[in-house]
Nucleic acid binder design. Structure first.
Length: 404
RNA sequence: GAGAGCGUAGCUCAGCUGGCAGAGCAGUGGACUGUGGAUCCACGGGUCGCGGGUUCGACUCCCGUCGCUCUCCCCA
């Protein structure tokens, strides 16, 4: 065992894993730019209150999953557990609401939650998130879901989009009461965890996986039946737009989210293979106000890059790798060849092994080189080099004049 | 916070009911000083996660501990 290991839940990202990660990230970033989102780089640390106010005091994230600490002046800071809170803070602090009718931002970076690591879950993980500020139109919700859907399909990651509406401050309180009453009635059928959830966060009981709970919840009142007129219309419009955009979705009346700031639309893209949420988001029409800005409706989503990476099966082919093998007293000539090839934009490795041709070819083979460039005394004298395709074994002569 | 499995060479792993620590791959050197992708030969490499206990003797059995992986809770 090495003397020093990385901290639990904090991983080195390298090799094949990193290539998959970059593949996912690049693809989503391009997609976001096509939808005219502008990047913002946000700090990893915020005042603890920013998260408490945004995510909700009684959520698990705030109660037990934050890396919080005091700075030298005794103020409470925290490593961000998600991106929206910081994005909203930045929107308000930089008064972006004064610039344009609406603002579309995206960000990418590490998030931190102190949970037990397991498959697709780390204490430092990475998200790309996007937020649209300033429009209440359900068209925005639909476009965001469309973006996510296109991204996932093009990435080749099978997933199902689920949507729901969880109402607003007008209609949700009544639903909460009705649901709580219902749950009291069936409490003898609920699992231990749900009995606890019933009082703390009744909506969460709805998506419990325990079969008896699922059964007990079957007759529960649904949020969609309690939506006020405004929320009902919003939800109906959203579905209409999704159809117009040919985005397949599944309504899940039991879909709820773990953060308190959501209103109206919530959605998730779930992987059937991993049985895990890959991308999640929704509307949060009160959060900007909550963090001191003017009343501003907003919608957003966040994608988990590690989870997405797990589902990437094929990577695009890499640029072919050239390797220059000098043998004999020809280093000056070989270096000129290397320089020239690189200037043509080729990916070039120079053999660092001073050995016979055979050994160097073995080395090139082990390094997965596509083309080998043979440079020996004859080549130098004759002003050429030999280009050998390591796949086919074919070899061609290429004229080369180092003076040019 | 709760539960389960696993820690032996750089990697993948074997090692029986306790009795000298092993293989394959990788690495290094070399028959071959101008042709690789399974030619041959040789070599190096270990605190068996750590600590304690049982025993004449522990990689093996017991206890503890740390780490990794997975599951639940929760979440991207």
């Amino acid at each position: 065992m090495p003397e020093f290991q990385s901290v639990r839940g904090f991983h080195d990202l390298l090799g094949e894993d990193l290539r998959k990660f970059r593949h996912v990230s690049q693809h989503l970033r391009e997609k976001l730019k096509l939808y005219n989102f502008e990047e913002v780089v946000l700090p990893v640390v915020e005042y603890l209150e920013v998260f408490q106010r945004s995510i909700g005091e009684v959520t698990d994230i705030v109660q037990k999953e934050m890396f919080a600490f005091k700075d030298q002046k005794g103020r409470w800071l925290a490593l961000r557990p998600e991106g929206t809170a910081g994005a909203v803070r930045a929107y308000v602090q930089n008064r972006l609401y004064a610039l344009k009718p609406h603002v579309k931002l995206f960000y990418e970076g590490p998030m931190f939650r102190h949970e037990r690591p397991q498959a697709g879950r780390y204490r430092q993980f990475h998200q790309i998130g996007a937020e649209v500020f300033g429009s209440i139109d359900p068209l925005v919700d639909a476009e965001i879901i469309q973006l996510v859907y296109e991204f996932l399909s093009e990435l080749g990651v099978p997933s199902v989009i689920e949507i729901n509406s969880i109402g607003c401050r007008v209609c949700r309180p009544a639903y909460r009461v009705a649901l709580k009453e219902y749950l009291e009635g069936v409490s003898e059928h609920l699992c231990q965890v749900c009995l606890d959830r019933k009082d703390r966060n009744p909506l969460r009981v709805l998506d419990c996986k325990v079969p008896t709970c699922k059964e007990a919840v079957r007759g529960a009142p649904k949020m969609v039946d309690f939506l006020c007129q405004d929320c009902t219309e919003h939800y109906a419009k959203l579905k209409e737009y999704l159809q117009l955009l040919s985005v397949p979705y599944r309504e899940n009346p039991y879909l709820v989210r773990g953060l308190d700031y959501y209103t109206k639309t919530v959605f998730e893209a779930v992987s059937p293979e991993l049985d895990m949420t890959l991308v999640a988001g929704g509307r949060y029409d009160y959060l900007v106000e909550e963090l001191g800005g003017p009343p501003t409706p907003a919608v957003g989503f966040a994608a988990g890059l590690e989870r997405l990476s797990l589902l990437v099966k094929e990577l695009p082919r890499e640029e072919p790798l050239y390797m220059v093998l000098p043998f004999g007293d020809v280093m000056d000539y070989a270096l000129a060849v290397v320089k020239s090839l690189r200037s043509e934009g080729k990916r070039v490795e120079l053999s660092y092994k001073r050995a016979g041709l055979k050994k160097q070819l073995e080395l090139a083979n082990r390094l997965g080189v596509s083309y080998v460039v043979l440079v020996g005394e004859e080549e130098k004298a004759g002003g050429f080099y030999l280009l050998k395709d390591m796949e086919t074994g074919q070899q061609v002569r290429v004229e080369f004049n180092p003076a040019l």
